[in-house]
Amino acid sequence: MNQPQRFRWAEFTIEALIRVLGFSTIGFVLLIFLFLLREGLPTFFEVPLGNLFGTRWYPTFDLFGTLPLILGSALVTLTAIVIALPLGVATAVFVREVAPGWARELLKPMIEVLAGIPSVVLGFFGMTVIAPLVRQTLGAPTGLTAFTGALILAYMSLPTLISVAEDALDAVPKSYRDAGLAMGATQWQTIWRVVVPAARSGIVTAVMLGLGRAIGETMAVMMVTGNAARLPLTLDSLFRPVRTMTATIAAEMGEVAQGSVHYHALFAIGIILFLMTFLINLAAALTIFQKRRRGGLR
């Protein structure tokens, strides 16, 4: 009688412990978000909205226009994805569909190693190699531009993009490939018209995850984009210095007086950034969910 009773208690304790640990992870995320709100929300009362979403970020003169920063982040990130998408999908197609077995075994771990390079190292590389290269090729006054940042970011988001896209291609049943080939399609036509479209939702997810990683990246971007908070609306903006939201927070947080309007404004940027990444991740999750629901043979 006693023995099973004790066992059930052990079971109960362990189960409760696991449950608490599991919920606490969610709890921490929630607490971080609440903290972000507590520190950032006052901005929306202290600074008029016209100022907050104005075109000039110049805290010394109480100008907290976040628009240049938001657009700076958007410009760098979107350019990065435009560069990374074709490279990443092409690499994934090569690794999964074309490369012989030994090359695949060699390439996959190497791509994963890419993900492990610390971003500050990439920043170094960007500053000393890419930036001078950009300056010389464009004849620009400085090589620290949005484009330089986009190149580095593209490189950083490639490992995620490639491995998720490759998984998506891997999940395409062999029967689709067989059907394509048996119709008299070439290998290339089969890949391009059957396999890649069938993996479309997975590739979209890969892009979203790459995007989420790129938009939150700070160190490398801060090192190579020149950090001038100007509105990137002219045509040549891509090849001029720009400042992202993340770089602004990282650069200014150390010197700001705690509790000041500037301090709150930096947190407000954090909220905006959080919302943007949240929406991107949500979109990625929804695509995955939709794919699961369509299911079928997969």
Partner: peptide, 13 residues
């Protein structure tokens, strides 16, 4: 010239 139909129906998605 020589078409094929497979064991499991495999229409493209």
């Amino acid at each position: 010239r020589v078409g094929m139909v497979f064991q499991r129906p495999n229409p493209f998605p």
